[in-house]
Structure formats: C-alpha cells, structure tokens
Amino acid sequence: MTGALIVEQLFNGLVSGAIYALMASGLSLIWGTLKMLNFAHGEFYMLGGYGVYLGLTLGGLSPLVAVPLAVLGAALVGMLVERLIIHRLLDKPGWDESPVIATLGVSILLQNLVLHILGERFQNVPYYVEGGLSVYGMRMAWQRVLIVAAAIVVVAATVAVLKSTRWGMAVRATAQDRDSAMLAGINVYAVYLWTFGVTAALAALAGAMLSPIYSVNPWMGTALLLKAFIVCVVGGLGSLGGAILGGILLGTAESLTVLLWASEWKDVVAFLILILVLWFRPAGLMGSRQW
C-alpha cells in the first residue's frame, strides 16, 4: 500500500462525504422546519441525475446549462410535492406519521414514472471535464474535484443565506418556534414551500454532479437516502454543521474500510458507526443545536 493510494482513497472518501453532506443538509432542513422525514428525498437526487442525462445526451446542452436546468426542474417538482401533498396533511390528525406514507408514495411514484418513461437501463453520463489532476503520482479526476468544490460552495451559500438574509431568518424562526414565527407575520406555509424547493435542489445538484461517475437509473436514490439519513442522525438531526461533519466522517470511514478490509463491508461499517454514535451520543455529534 503506497502513500499515494491512501491519499487517493481519502480523497474519494471526501467526494462521497461531499455528496452525503449535500443530501443530509436537505433532510435536516426539512426536519428542522416541518418536523418530518422526507422519504422521497432520494428521488430528487435521481431527478437531478436524469435531468443532466437528458440535457447532455438528448438536448446536446453544455453542462453549464444542463446542471442548472436539472436542479431547477427538481426544485419545481419538490415544490409541487409540498403544495399538492404535504401542505394538505399539515396540522391534520396523524401528522406525526402521515408524511412517512405520503413521501414513500411519492418515492414509489417518481421511481416508476421515470422507469416507465426512460426505461430501466442504466444510462451513462459523460464527464463534464475530462482528465484530472496528477500530483506526486496521485490521480484525481477533475470531475471529482468539481464535486467537492460544488458541494463546498453550495453548502456554504446555504448556510450564509440562512444566517443573514431575511428569508433565511424566517426559515430559522419557523424551525425554532412555528407559532411565534406566524405571530411575527411570517408566512410559514411559504417557508415550507421554499424549503422543499431548496432541499430538492440540493439533492438534485448532488445527483447531477455524481451522475458522470456512476450511471443513472431509477433506483439510484434509494441507497443514498439511507446513507443520508445515517449522516443526519450521526451529525445530529436538524443541525447543518452536523450534516457536513457527519457526511465527511462517513465518507472517510467508508473509504478506509475499502482500503483496509473489503468494499462489500463498507456499508456494514457505516451502519455500525450509526449505532455506536447513537449509543454513546443519543442526540448525534452536534446535538440538536439551533441554527
């Protein structure tokens, strides 16, 4: 085992971690504001992947156009889901559980809709940038570097928006005390709508960036959703910092498992970390700190 190999693996872990962080911060935002788990979150990732696939291969667009279009499309679907389904379940009896079935239904529906329209074949998406970086014998594909960069920029932008814009403050207020937010004149239903849109966009971006590395297929969101849930809980559900920390932690742990053991055991290690963290820190690493 050479040093270059180790660094390469760690870098791959960082790539997975960046994707996990993108997905998990969306789940955390939804939990923070709406107090619900979104089981259809993986499908927005899938839609992002397919959006880029369609834009690049059928539309012949440049990635600079295709990626934003795919992200926007998924965001619109997310807002539609909120308005047509989630909005109607809010505050009704059974709200503690009803979104679980509703979002599972959306997940099954979207998977099979895509399956129906685009078929079950795995589709390949070309790399946005060919070639890679070569430092001291280590190879890092530009596509992977791009993923990490995009994730850092987008997550940082999300945090900045939440921290310092009027809309971001409204989201935080809604998350911290919904009734008070309403009494202050915040339209929390609009907050819910936009939160769904933004989180769908974050997931779609992850899918769009990652699709050249893995191919796209209707079920690509399922496995990642489980990982994103783990990341949320390991980091502390509802905490954005936790989502980032948890994502990087999980990505690194997985690549170390591949390096030191065998790739088929990396998921077992991931889930074991989850159970251990919950055993010793029941509220996750960052707890449910307010944001």
Binding site: L37, D96, L274, W279, S288
Partner: peptide
C-alpha cells in the same frame, strides 16, 4: 440503545440501520 433516544426519527433511523446491517451481513 434506542430507548435512550427521544426524537422519533432517531429510533426510525437506528432500527433501519440495524436492519441494513443484517441484510449486508
């Protein structure tokens, strides 16, 4: 370990994790 968790999603995800461990093993 689940009994120490108060927020419902933690229980859901911890048990889901356990089931996935069983599946992978």
């Amino acid at each position: 370990p689940c009994l120490g968790l108060r927020a419902p999603p933690y229980v859901a995800i911890a048990t889901l994790g356990f089931a996935e461990i069983c599946r992978f093993i």
